[in-house]
């Protein structure tokens, strides 16, 4: 479903310097599978999520990334979204003045229009969002508030999952979804993610800690260091990392 081959990229830092982050990353996630990427801070995990979704300033210098058989590199972020690529942000963005309901309705219908589907009517949308919000314990009152404004860290992460439930993407990238969550919030969010697991949907779970993977069980675990995947294995690899730390893998990457 998602095939990344020998991906290199560079970013421009705030002081105008160019910095190479991804250095030949290769990875393949088939439909129906959940893959985890673990790695120390600075290994390039978040950069990978931005490169895949097309953020400005994250330039691909070499390699390919193919999603459902199509090269992503030339597509705008909104085109990638309409194809079904969804990023749950590590730090969900506050958008003052734009009510969450309005935002999601506009986003869903923009995606549907881009795919040549019919826009969802306002009553159908309200029914749909009400059902999904209820399942996730999100009140309609919260949905009327501006996107993420004044929400706690846990509420923001829950909103990210709610947005995924509304937009029904084909592929989810979860960037540090566990950060800032207490154990109860983590369980709620993981339950939401697990309801999205299906045979025709893939997921890439980016995390620093093994904890999240107790609740979202991956099929494959990749270890990332210094801009590359340095080791891949089954779920047991996450426990191995937790017990032994990243050092030995970083050593292999250097």
């Amino acid at each position: 479903m998602l095939k990344i081959n020998n991906l290199h990229n560079k970013v421009e830092t705030q002081d105008g310097e160019e910095k190479v982050i991804l250095k030949g990353l290769s990875l393949e996630v088939p439909a129906g599978e959940v893959h985890a990427i673990m790695g120390p801070n600075g290994s390039g995990k978040s950069t990978l999520s931005y490169v895949l979704t097309g953020r400005d300033g994250y330039e691909v210098t070499d390699g390919e990334m193919e999603f459902l058989g199509e090269e992503l590199g030339e597509l705008e972020p909104e085109e990638r979204a309409a194809k079904g690529l969804y990023l749950s942000f590590q730090y969900p963005v506050e958008i003052p003045g734009v009510p969450t309901i309005t935002f999601l309705k506009e986003a869903l219908n923009a995606q549907r229009t881009a795919r040549g589907e019919e826009a969802m009517s306002a009553p159908d949308f309200m029914k749909f969002i009400r059902e999904q919000a209820k399942a996730l314990g999100v009140s309609m009152d919260m949905l009327k508030r501006p996107v993420n404004v004044g929400f706690s860290g846990g509420e923001k992460k829950r909103m990210e999952i709610l947005q995924a439930l509304i937009l029904q993407p084909k592929f989810l990238i979860l960037d540090e979804t566990d950060s800032g969550l207490d154990i109860d919030a983590l369980k709620t969010v993981a339950e939401g993610v697990n309801t999205l697991r299906s045979d025709d949907r893939g997921m890439l779970v980016i995390t620093h800690y093994q904890r999240l993977l107790d609740y979202i069980k991956p099929d494959v675990v990749h270890v990332m260091a210094n801009g590359r995947i340095v080791k891949s294995g089954g779920p047991e690899l996450a426990h191995e990392l937790e017990a032994e730390g990243y050092d030995k893998f970083i050593g292999e990457a250097a």
């Binding site: 972020p77 003052p96 923009a110």
Partner: peptide
């Protein structure tokens, strides 16, 4: 806010639409 712009585009809104929504809300 370029971060907000990217966030909105990642959800499927065109750049023009996302900018218009951000400016209007401002």
């Amino acid at each position: 806010d370029e971060t907000a712009l990217f966030y909105m585009r990642q959800r499927g809104l065109s750049e023009v639409k996302a900018r218009a929504m951000l400016i209007e809300s401002f």
